[in-house]
């Protein structure tokens, strides 16, 4: 079988790191979601929340290897995060225009529905910022990991040996 060729340089993942990541992943994900949802009233805001959600996935990828993570989190989910974020952002903006205000002018909500300025910002913070940031962080990471081709590595190694 051809698969026996790959056994020579098998790298096994560290069990200690895997278990640590398993334990802290739910907490970081909850914390990221908490920061995103409280982005409108705490400093820092949703950008950090989205970044932490993304970092949680990166952490799983570092501990378990990229392939199992890709299987766990399908590409469609990641794309859904980004497009959903953009959709919420635009929908909130267009809703204010439809209600007679400018793009993202939250006061239009206050006049029509009587809901506070705060909730418009909340929608933007959660949908517009957190989802997009998380999605982009994960997408960039997967894209970077996929782009690391072995051919480039061998070129680099050859250069080193020429120097010798």
């Amino acid at each position: 079988m051809s698969r026996s060729d790959t056994h020579g340089d098998t790298y096994t993942e560290s069990q200690v790191i895997m278990t640590t990541v398993k334990i802290i992943a739910p907490f970081t994900l909850t914390y990221g979601a908490f920061l995103s949802l409280h982005g409108a009233d705490t400093p820092g805001g949703s950008f950090q929340g989205g970044a932490i959600i993304g970092v949680t996935v990166l952490m799983l990828a570092f501990a378990f290897g990229i392939e199992p993570t890709r299987r766990w989190l399908k590409n469609s989910v990641v794309v859904g995060l980004v497009t959903g974020g953009v959709a919420i952002f635009i929908a909130t903006g267009l809703a204010t225009i439809a209600l007679g205000g400018n793009f993202l002018e939250y006061d239009a909500f206050v006049e029509t529905f009587g809901i506070a300025h705060y909730w418009g910002m909340e929608a933007i913070e959660v949908g517009g910022v957190a989802l997009i940031v998380a999605g982009v962080v994960i997408t960039l990471f997967f894209a970077t990991a996929a782009g690391f081709t072995p051919t480039r590595r061998e070129e680099g190694i050859e250069e080193v040996s020429q120097d010798d």
Partner: peptide
């Protein structure tokens, strides 16, 4: 309210990762 939603998402996505 958001806590229930977040906990739902977290348990749905990570339950089988954390408790292997």
């Amino acid at each position: 309210v958001t806590g229930v939603a977040v906990a739902g998402i977290v348990s749905f996505s990570l339950a089988n990762v954390t408790f292997s």
